[in-house]
Amino acid sequence: MNLQYEDAGGDGIPVLALHGTFGRGRTFAAVAERLSPDYRLIAPDLRGHGRSPHGLGDYGRNAFIKDVAELIEALHVAPLPVIGHSLGGVTAFQLAARRPELVAAVVVEDVGAVTDESELPEPVLDVTGWPTRFSGRREAEEFFGQTPAPSYFLESVVAEDAGWELLFDLDEMMAVQWGNVGVWWDDWTAVRQPMLLLRATDSFLLSERLASEMVRRRPGTELVTFDGTGHWIHRKDPDRYAATIRAFFEQLTTSRPPGG
């Protein structure tokens, strides 16, 4: 499938960045700027999001992994580091586990190896009643101003011929969320590439207890905690986020995978 993607360009080392549910590749724009010119960030709109194909029906884990693998192969950039936020974080470590030849290293931003009711009281955000069209930008800003990350959601509100509209379908977003609900320990522990886990102290998806368990079960995982950022670390603190990732990448030449 042909995913639309943002490409920072240049001669830097390619890095793939995968957004979370409701997002778009452009959510990583500030990070791409801070990593340039040493790194060339490539950030796709995942299926059902942004300008990538919609109405596909399948929003399970295998479909997302397959899409990303095909993009990497089409761009001839394997193996490369993969960054993933939330939904994209699960996709990132599952891709590394199932298609290891494509991935050089993994950065997982604020999501756990367990995303079901045993870990999260409400693993899915019910968006079925959300508006999909707005009379103007201001109306959209007022609605999404009630969410934890207004600017993140507003990136998917665009001016079309019929007015201001969402770039995602609400039913598809429910399917995307449910497709990401599960217990993914087998994938997490199967990753052999260097891995960095980023956690926000104010996270509603990744508890301190679960993050510690992820490090215990997968020795060699580096854990970095961000104070006061909330779930969208890359948007709230792009300076430290980029600096942390850059430091991790610079260690890759001397890193050794667990058991390697």
Rank of each mutant, 00 (worst) to 15 (best):
L46N: 05
L46K: 04
L46Q: 14
L46F: 09
R47V: 00
G48L: 09
G48Q: 03
G48I: 05
H49Q: 07
H49M: 02
R51E: 15
R51W: 07
S52W: 08
P53Q: 01
G55P: 05
L56S: 05
D58S: 12
Y59I: 10
Y59F: 13
G60D: 14
R61T: 14
R61M: 15
R61Y: 08
N62A: 15
A63C: 09
A63H: 11
I65P: 02
K66I: 04
D67L: 08
D67S: 06
E70G: 04
E70K: 11
L71C: 02
L71Y: 05
A74I: 02
H76Y: 03
H76R: 13
V77H: 01
A78M: 04
P79L: 11
P79A: 07
L80P: 00
I83P: 00
H85F: 08
H85Y: 11
S86V: 06
G89A: 05
T91L: 03
A92C: 01
F93S: 03
F93V: 01
Q94E: 05
L95I: 06
R98H: 02
R99W: 00
R99Q: 10
R99I: 00
P100D: 01
E101W: 01
A105R: 04
V106K: 00
V106R: 00
V107F: 01
E109W: 03
E109C: 04
D110T: 06
D110N: 05
V111F: 03
V111R: 03
A113P: 10
V114T: 04
V114E: 10
V114A: 08
T115H: 09
E117L: 01
S118M: 05
E119G: 01
E119N: 02
P121E: 14
E122M: 11
E122L: 12
E122H: 14
P123F: 11
P123Y: 06
V124I: 15
D126T: 09
D126Y: 08
V127E: 10
V127A: 09
V127L: 12
V127T: 13
V127I: 13
G129N: 13
G129T: 14
W130F: 15
W130Q: 08
P131K: 12
P131I: 07
R133M: 14
R133C: 05
F134S: 06
S135R: 15
R137S: 14
R138T: 15
R138L: 14
A140P: 11
E141H: 09
E142H: 12
F143E: 13
F144K: 07
Q146N: 15
T147S: 14
P148L: 08
P148Y: 11
P150M: 06
P150E: 06
Y152N: 04
L154Y: 06
L154R: 04
E155L: 14
S156Y: 01
S156K: 02
V157Q: 03
V157E: 08
V158G: 07
E160N: 04
E160D: 11
D161V: 10
A162D: 14
G163T: 12
